[in-house]
Each structure stands twice: as structure tokens, then as C-alpha cells.
């Protein structure tokens, strides 16, 4: 994937996680939001109100725009560390909600 970000310390131990079912390798222990951005994930979720795309805005746990689901539980990606086996899903927002 093409990323808008560059990783200055790429020689790190990578571990497998899944994002919406696809497997990808991310640096172990890294900040999850930073790792996803560096990997090239541009959109993290759709908003519940309009389904508009969002991605991390503050990186300090204050804006809640980096919300993703980890094993089905909504979490702030910028406040989470990468671990092997994370099952990540992007909240799809209003337009895609079931029912």
C-alpha cells in the first residue's frame, strides 16, 4: 500500500494482525494508529452520523476519530499498542450499519 507517511525506524520485529480479514505485518509494540498510517491505511472508520470517512486527528486520545474495533470492542487506535494476533475491523458507520 502507498502511505502518506514514512517510517524512520523500519528495522523492527514485525507481527501478524488482521484488518477487515486481511493479514498484515506491523511492528510489535508500536502505536497502533501510527503503525496503520505508516502501513498505508488512510481511512480508519465511517462516522455513525453520516458515514463520513475519518482517520486519526489528535494522536493523543482526545478526538476519538481513530476509533477501530479490536476483537469486536471499540478502541482508540492511538492509545493501543500492536500485538501479534490483533483482529482489527474498521467501523463502517451509518451507511453500512446492519438493519
Amino acid at each position: 500500500m502507498n502511505s502518506a507517511f514514512r517510517d524512520l525506524t523500519p528495522a523492527q520485529q514485525l507481527v501478524p494482525v488482521t484488518l477487515d480479514g486481511d493479514e498484515l505485518m506491523l511492528p510489535d509494540g508500536a502505536n497502533l494508529a501510527a503503525a496503520l498510517l505508516a502501513y498505508g491505511v488512510g481511512v480508519f472508520r465511517g462516522t455513525p452520523v453520516s458515514g463520513a470517512p475519518r482517520a486519526p486527528y489528535c494522536m493523543m486520545g482526545a478526538c476519538f476519530d481513530c476509533l477501530i474495533e479490536l476483537h469486536g470492542v471499540t478502541r482508540q487506535a492511538c492509545m493501543t499498542q500492536v500485538q501479534a494476533g490483533l483482529v482489527i475491523t474498521k467501523p463502517k458507520g451509518r451507511d453500512h450499519a446492519d438493519g
Binding site: 502518506a4 507517511f5 514514512r6 517510517d7 524512520l8 525506524t9 508500536a30 502505536n31 501510527a34 503503525a35 498510517l37 505508516a38 488512510g42 481511512v43 480508519f44 470517512p53 475519518r54 482517520a55 486519526p56 486527528y57 489528535c58 494522536m59 493523543m60
Partner: peptide, 18 residues
């Protein structure tokens, strides 16, 4: 997406080297 605070840009650099 792609709009962040300057602080966020700096946090990426400090905490993640991104």
C-alpha cells in the same frame, strides 16, 4: 482523513518515528 493537528504530527515523530 489526512488532516491532523501539528501536535499529532509531532507525536507520530516522537513516539513512533513516523
Amino acid at each position: 482523513p489526512g488532516v491532523m493537528t501539528a501536535g499529532a504530527g509531532q507525536i507520530l515523530l516522537k513516539a513512533s518515528g513516523v
